[in-house]
């Protein structure tokens, strides 16, 4: 690298880069190509292949996996085709779980981000540091610890009982509440950080202007602050919603078999000998498609906003 810098060293910056664009773009191509495009293509192709019963695939193209997802032909495949509700149900439940996780993360994350962004500049990094400390521990370990905290004989129930709030332990494991708790705890920083970045750039003179123009705290918040930091909020929501939709650790460990989510469904297909790789790939592709559609709608709304309307 030193070679081509010295060669063009006396020229302007453009001459250094001239003709080397493809070299300089290599890291970008590597990330986009090798780490994103090729894996997705592999997944797409696998979703159209035939299942091998010991795991893996047979190279015969078929729509079997998608058929299995959407259409119910009875146990032996000889009944008239009906809509298969099992997997759509799992999708719907996952969707709701992710939506709730997103809302909870927002309700807690926004005030947190606002609090941090309004501290003195020196102490902000300290608060951000506090937020990120738990994430130095592996997600699996955190989720398992959560399970220990909320189990029937865990500290949470013990405290509640010793304070006399409850007489019998509340069974929290294997409930939607446990999943929500897990998702919330896993993804809260993804909500806090983008909102924090937006609020930090927010011009607080706007809040003063709103107060000057007869707004109370709430109208200032809803009419001025939130619209102004909307990009951060939307980024935070996307960053929480999408991984929550495909999460499998929290639902698996905290939700149990009853509360099956997309992530667990996909994981199941690639685990051990009973897996069905094409089906797992197909479920992933369907999830990916749904997410792409959501993001497209968002991008279109965004560009309409930026064009200043009429």
């Amino acid at each position: 690298m030193a070679g081509w810098i010295t060669k063009g060293g006396n020229g302007a910056q453009t001459s250094i880069v001239d003709g080397k664009q493809h070299i300089l773009l290599m890291p970008a191509w590597f990330v986009i190509g090798i780490l994103l495009v090729i894996p997705v293509l592999v997944m797409l192709i696998y979703s159209f292949l035939t299942q091998d019963f010991r795991g893996g695939v047979i190279w015969e193209f078929t729509l079997e996996a998608y058929d299995q997802f959407f259409i119910d032909r009875g146990l032996f495949g000889d009944e008239p085709a009906r809509i298969e509700w099992t997997y759509l149900g799992i999708f719907w439940r996952s969707f709701l779980q992710a939506l709730f996780a997103m809302v909870f993360c927002f309700l807690i994350g926004f005030p947190t981000a606002y609090f941090i962004a309004t501290r003195a500049p020196k102490s902000r990094s300290f608060w951000l540091f506090l937020i990120t400390i738990p994430y130095w521990v592996n997600l699996l370990i955190r989720t398992v610890s959560m399970k220990f905290l909320i189990r029937d004989t865990g500290p949470l129930n013990n405290w509640l009982m010793s304070w006399g709030v409850i007489d019998d332990p509340i069974s929290m494991i294997n409930t939607n509440f446990a999943i929500q708790l897990g998702l919330f705890y896993s993804y809260l920083p993804f909500m806090v950080l983008p909102i924090y970045a937006s609020i930090e750039r927010y011009n607080f003179a706007l809040s003063e202007a709103a107060a000057d123009l007869y707004s109370n705290r709430w109208t200032t918040l809803f009419k001025v602050v939130i619209p102004a930091v909307k990009p951060g909020i939307i980024a935070g929501c996307i960053l929480v919603f999408i991984p929550s939709l495909g999460a499998f650790l929290a639902p698996d460990l905290l939700g149990g078999a009853k509360n099956f989510m997309i992530g667990s469904l996909v994981e199941e297909q690639f685990k051990g000998q009973s897996g069905d790789w094409p089906f797992g790939a197909a479920v992933s592709m369907i999830l990916l498609t749904i997410i792409m559609i959501i993001l497209l709608f968002y991008a279109r709304a965004q560009s309409r906003d930026n064009n200043g309307g009429h």
């Binding site: 011009n203 003179a205 003063e208 202007a209 619209p227 102004a228 909307k230």
Partner: peptide, 10 residues
């Protein structure tokens, strides 16, 4: 206000 503080989204 000194820097006007107009509401940018309105």
């Amino acid at each position: 206000f000194q820097q006007y503080a107009l509401f940018p989204h309105l």
